[in-house]
Amino acid sequence: MARVVCIHGIGQQFVGELGLHSSWFPALADGLTRAGSPDLVGPDDVRCLFYGDLFRPPGRTLAVQDPPLTAVDVGEGFETELLLAWWAEAARTDQAVPPPDARTLARVPRVAQRALNALSRSRFFAGIALRGLVLDLRQVRAYLCDTAIRDAVQERVAAAVTEDTRIVIGHSLGSVVAYEALCAHPRWPVRALLTLGSPLGIRNLVFDRLRPGGTGKPGDWPGGISQWTNLADEGDTVALVKDLRPLFGERLTSKVIHNGARAHDATRYLNTPEAGRAVSDGCGLG
């Protein structure tokens, strides 16, 4: 059974378990090679959990693209707040992106359109269609605000983790999923957590909405793990807060790495020596 369980993030609704494994495992193997442990993990040791289908509209075939969403489809409240946060972070790290001004932050009409127009200039969001950005916003909101979606995702995590699992890897929204799952199951044999491009540090929108399970509270140490490594690219707009230690404690190891133009790409995180060492140490525990 898999010693490593991987949990994907937003925008993966048209992939699947095998598709994720075909890209994530080679990247992870490269990271282990960089870390000096090339033979530690084989393909059967890695399981890629998939939940993207929960966000996919029913009745569509693989040939059908995302629904034609526009700025008017960005919901008030959570989705607009997250969009503005992405805009502000993109402007901070990319000179091509104009920053939001005081008038924008006061929620003028068409703020979503202005934010999307600004983000279209960002290297981070290059190649992502407007409708894709809107869908990403909706997926984050759906997991954090829709109990049925959240429970369905967590059920899949619980089914994927076995007595052999030693480390859980969560990318993007998957890091939120992983954190909550480990908090809710302190008796799991998992001994390490690796989070990549994580939004866990966004206070009002993500951190304050975490459900650690039972009587737990946001910021609790996740379950019975012994180590937690968080990797963030300085230009990763989703990972607004690069250092998670102020919120989750000094036991956590936070590292800033460089992924080039694809700052949020899961495979670029996985093929780093930092990720390889975290997996090597995690698989060697217990």
Rank of each mutant, 00 (worst) to 15 (best):
75 G>L: 12
268 R>M: 10
260 G>V: 09
106 A>Y: 04
81 E>T: 02
89 E>M: 12
233 D>W: 08
191 R>I: 02
149 I>H: 09
231 L>D: 10
137 L>K: 13
99 P>F: 03
218 P>G: 12
180 E>P: 09
41 V>A: 11
232 A>V: 04
157 V>T: 12
115 A>H: 01
226 S>P: 01
163 E>T: 07
187 R>C: 12
254 S>H: 03
26 P>H: 13
145 C>N: 09
14 F>S: 11
194 L>W: 02
281 D>H: 09
207 F>I: 00
286 G>T: 10
22 S>I: 02
42 G>S: 14
285 L>C: 14
246 P>K: 00
83 L>D: 09
58 P>N: 08
175 S>A: 15
90 A>I: 05
240 L>D: 07
116 L>G: 00
226 S>H: 10
266 A>R: 01
188 W>L: 10
124 F>G: 05
88 A>R: 00
105 L>E: 07
209 R>L: 11
194 L>T: 01
166 R>E: 14
109 P>W: 01
55 F>H: 05
255 K>I: 08
159 A>T: 14
228 W>N: 06
159 A>M: 11
104 T>F: 13
124 F>E: 15
113 Q>V: 04
229 T>I: 01
13 Q>V: 11
37 S>C: 10
131 R>V: 13
23 S>G: 15
194 L>P: 01
100 P>V: 04
102 A>F: 10
212 P>C: 08
173 L>I: 12
25 F>W: 10
72 V>K: 05
141 R>K: 12
234 E>V: 12
154 Q>I: 09
56 R>V: 07
169 I>T: 03
185 H>V: 11
25 F>V: 13
114 R>G: 10
229 T>E: 07
